[in-house]
């Protein structure tokens, strides 16, 4: 057991953004959260990260209510990996990763040798130790995303929450990043990512959570759940699921122009 979301609802004033969401994310599992923009994916993530307090229901980490946990305690268990961004100041890649060690440091302490070792190991683990002295602003988007993952590894949390990690990556980097993330899940991390791409759920994920209008449309094995009718409901497009290599690989291929009305119910 690791991250558990039970009957979680959230409203901004009158506006109900999340309605009774329930799912779990186990260690060693890669969960993709699928859904169009504005369905509440980031609100759900914010609730899981302790940034928002749910109106009812709860998100629990190893059984503990996340909204009751101290921030540094939560940060030791859940690491957030934002979309690659450009911070105001150009830190070296190493300094950036070193910041991940903060949840286990004392109030006035700054990182020493053990933390530096941790940061270096995280970089080596992802095969980007050669970037260590480069400026974070000066490396490519794919490299930046890897650095943010390395920072999360240095944070030594068991759950990794990623906000559309592939959003700004080119085709090759997208695939390489997904393979890296897949590997992390196999090493025992619970990985949760938000994405728009059903193929990522098919190819790399163990579970899929489909959100629409603040509700769970489907949760479980992507192979059981992702089909033409789900994609039509989520995105309003017609797709056909193609089975390749004796059904060891499945992909969604759009077969028609985007419809103007959501349909095929």
């Amino acid at each position: 057991m690791s991250l558990e979301v039970e009957n979680l609802s959230f409203s901004y004033g009158e506006n109900k953004v999340l309605k009774s969401i329930t799912f779990t994310a186990e260690y060693g599992e890669f969960l993709s959260v699928l859904g169009p923009n504005g369905v509440g994916k980031s609100t759900l993530f914010r609730c899981m990260l302790g940034l928002l307090v749910p109106s009812s229901g709860a998100a629990r980490m190893d059984g503990e209510d996340i909204s009751q946990m101290r921030p540094e305690e939560l940060a030791r268990r859940i690491a957030y990996i934002p979309q690659s961004h450009t911070p105001a100041f150009n830190y070296t890649v190493f300094d950036m990763v070193l910041m991940g060690t903060i949840p286990r440091l004392g109030r006035f302490a700054s990182p020493c040798e053990p933390q530096r070792k941790q940061a270096l190991e995280a970089l080596e683990h992802l095969g980007i130790a050669h970037l260590k002295d480069r400026g974070y602003q000066k490396i490519s988007g794919g490299e930046r995303q890897l650095v943010l993952i390395a920072r999360a590894l240095a944070q030594q949390a068991g759950v990794l929450v990623m906000d559309e990690p592939c959003s700004s990556l080119d085709f090759g980097n997208k695939i390489r990043l997904m393979q890296t993330v897949r590997k992390l899940a196999e090493e025992g991390y619970a990985v949760i990512q938000s994405t728009h791409d059903p193929d990522q759920a098919y190819l790399y994920s163990d579970k899929v959570l489909a959100l629409y209008a603040g509700e769970v449309l489907a949760w479980g094995d992507p192979r059981d759940l992702i089909n033409d009718s789900l994609m039509a409901r989520l995105y309003g497009v017609d797709v056909e699921v193609c089975r390749l290599r004796d059904d060891s690989i499945r992909v969604c291929v759009p077969v028609q122009r985007v419809k103007t009305k959501r349909g095929t119910k």
Binding site: E72, A75, P87
Partner: peptide, 23 residues
């Protein structure tokens, strides 16, 4: 001087710093 390293985390932005356990 005592808190100087922590100021780095403030430059990342509010939400990101919070998820890393910074008050």
């Amino acid at each position: 001087l005592l808190l100087r390293w922590r100021i780095n985390l403030l430059t990342l932005g509010e939400e990101e710093a919070k998820t890393m356990g910074v008050n």
